[in-house]
Every structure is written in C-alpha cells, then in structure tokens.
C-alpha cells in the first residue's frame, strides 16, 4: 500500500482539517461538533435547511457539496461508515432556520438508522425534518425492489436540485417533493477495475483479478452483476449506458443531465474518453445532454473505475439543475 498517511486513525480528522483550510471562503466547522461541516449561509432564517452526511473516503462527497444554494450542513462519518446520530442531529440543528430541514442521504443501513434517530431527537426539539433516501444504483437491486437500491453519485444531483429549491424559498414539503422527484429521475451504474484499501486495514477489501473488471459494482466494493474481461473504453461506456437505459424510460427528444465520476484512481483523461462515447451514444438515440459533469465527484478511496449517472430532466428539474451554485466539489454558473 503506497499512500500518503500519518496515523491511519487520524485520517478523517486530518481530511476535515485540510478541507476547512482549503475552502474557508465557503465552509466552516460547527462549534458544536468537529464532525459537522457548515456552509456560511447555513441556518439562514426563513429558508429550509438542507442536510446530508455519510462515510468519509468518497471525497469530494459528502463535505464538498457544502456551499451556496447546495447543502447547508454535512455530518461526517469514519471511512465508509455512517456518521453518528449525534452528528446528524447537530447538522440538522445548525441548518434549521425555522422552516424545517430536509435530510437528503443515501440508502445504507447505518445512515438510515442514524438519520432516523437524529430526526426523532430533532422533532423533540421542535425542528421539522423530512427525509429523502437516494437509491439510484441500478445494479444493487432489481427494478421491482427499487427501495433496496443503494444511493451513489446520483445523490449529488439530488442535493443540487434540493439545495436550489430551498434557496428559492420553497416549503419543506416542496423541497422534499422535488428532491424525491430528482432521485426518481436518476439512475447510476458503476464499474470497478481495481479495489480500494482502507488504510487501517492495509489490504484491499475485495478482489478484482488482473485483466478483469466488475460491472455494477457498488462504491464500497459491493459486488456487481458481472465479472468480465477488461473491455475497451467504448465498450465499457456502452455497457454502462445499456444498463441505465434498460432501467430508465428515456426516449428520443428527452433531455438529460449526465454525471460521470471517477472512483478515485482512474485518470481523469480516461473519464473524458468514456464521456465522449456516452454522449455520442445518447446523441444517436436523440437524447440531448443539457448539462454534464465529468471528474472525480464521488470517489471510493483509490478504487479504479467510474460511475455513470443519468438524470432525466423535466422543466422544473432543468431549472433547478441550472441555478447557480458554489461549493468546493461543484460549481454551477447560470447558462446564458
């Protein structure tokens, strides 16, 4: 394992510390909890607060989406491990400006339990909390059991839409509704070429044989649907797109937002190689890419591979995706 580390047990604290220094124009640490990161506009009166949280190791997710017209407060967990209920509670408290808080997070057992406990504690304090659970990862469960699917990079688009909706002064119910619509319109699929290593463990937490790749892999290494010979990039892009299109009702004339994220170790130029094929294949189906994001948006330590996310846009989602936003992980300028 060739990694840049001090004591592996300190890695999350050191990550947060460096992140805060690097992005102090956009974010700050909660006074109440060293595992809660806040945007400077967090807790603004009269606006619904947007909260998320999750395990570390996915940077820039989750902390990187703290910012203006995006997420107000983020609970930070250990590597690949849900934040505490207490951290979620303090994120909720900080984000509340009197209009309630939408907690928009991914479908994992730990996050579900900790958010639920935090939401109940917040309700006792008189804070209204509604939640949306992202389940965009197509290969993690069949269509008929969509509720069991994991949340992956599609969460970013859910936060973008939810944050924009809250920034416009929408009610808590409306923020929840539109965030739910956002994730319902979104599908993701991952491919893995090499595993990742939790520094404290010192060895890869699963295996991918040399020359092989895994299609449908989760972003902690949850197994995919197929292990195949390593394919050329265009064929990988085609497989990913086929999986999404088979699950998602997209027709000629539709507009989409595409997010293609590396999992940590994949060179960014290879992401552009994949993206070129993805967009050209969408074009041949007369599906128009309205906006795209290509880069390391939601990683998995040094896993090699990528996640493709496609959101089908309607006029409302399009407007909210297009709204200006600024955060360390994602900046959106208004389209002219």
């Amino acid at each position: 394992m060739q990694r840049l580390l001090n004591d592996p047990d300190d890695i999350v604290d050191e990550t947060v510390a460096g992140f805060l220094r690097a992005h102090r124009d956009l974010v700050r640490l909660s006074d109440a909890n060293p595992r809660v990161v806040l945007s400077h506009g967090c807790g603004e009166k009269g606006r619904v607060g947007v909260v998320t949280g999750g395990g570390s190791g996915h940077e820039p997710a989750f902390i990187g989406y703290t910012g203006r017209n995006l997420v107000d407060a983020v609970a930070v967990g250990e590597l690949f491990s849900s934040p505490t209920a207490k951290a979620f509670l303090e994120a909720i408290r900080a984000a509340d400006g009197g209009e309630g808080v939408a907690v928009l997070y991914g479908n994992y057992a730990g996050d579900n339990m900790n958010v639920k406990m935090a939401a109940r504690m917040a309700a006792k304090e008189g804070i209204r909390v509604l939640t949306v659970v992202a389940n965009d990862d197509v290969c993690s469960a069949p269509q008929a059991e969509r509720g069991l699917r994991r949340g992956v990079a599609g969460e970013i688009l859910m936060w973008k839409v939810g944050g924009a909706c809250a920034a416009r002064g929408a009610s808590l119910e409306d923020v929840q509704k539109v965030a739910q619509a956002a994730i319902d319109a979104t599908r993701s699929v991952g491919v893995g070429l090499a595993p990742c290593t939790l520094p404290a463990n010192g060895k890869p937490n699963f295996e991918i044989a040399p020359g092989k790749m895994e299609i449908g892999i989760g972003h902690h290494g949850e197994p995919g649907t197929d292990v195949v010979e390593l394919l050329p990039a265009n064929e990988v892009a085609d497989r990913m797109l086929e999986i999404i299109l088979a699950d998602h009702q997209l027709e000629a004339g539709d507009e989409v937002c595409v997010l293609l994220s590396g999992l940590g170790a994949t060179p960014v130029n290879e992401l552009y190689v994949l993206y070129d094929r993805v967009e050209s294949q969408l074009e041949t189906r007369e599906i128009r890419v309205h906006r795209s994001f290509v880069g390391n948006y939601f990683t998995s330590l040094e896993m090699m591979g990528a996640t493709l996310t496609v959101m089908k846009l309607d006029p409302q989602l399009k407007e909210l995706i297009d709204m200006e936003a600024e955060s360390p992980g994602l900046t959106v300028r208004a389209k002219s």
């Binding site: 849900s82 505490t84 209920a85 207490k86 951290a87 057992a109 730990g110």
Partner: peptide, 14 residues
C-alpha cells in the same frame, strides 16, 4: 456509545 460511534453498530448497541 451513540455519540461515539456511527455506522450501524452505534444505533444498535445504544
């Protein structure tokens, strides 16, 4: 326990 540990075991053992 709940304050110290997230994951699934935080809520479970709490």
């Amino acid at each position: 326990f709940l304050q110290a540990v997230g994951a699934t075991v935080g809520p479970l053992y709490a």
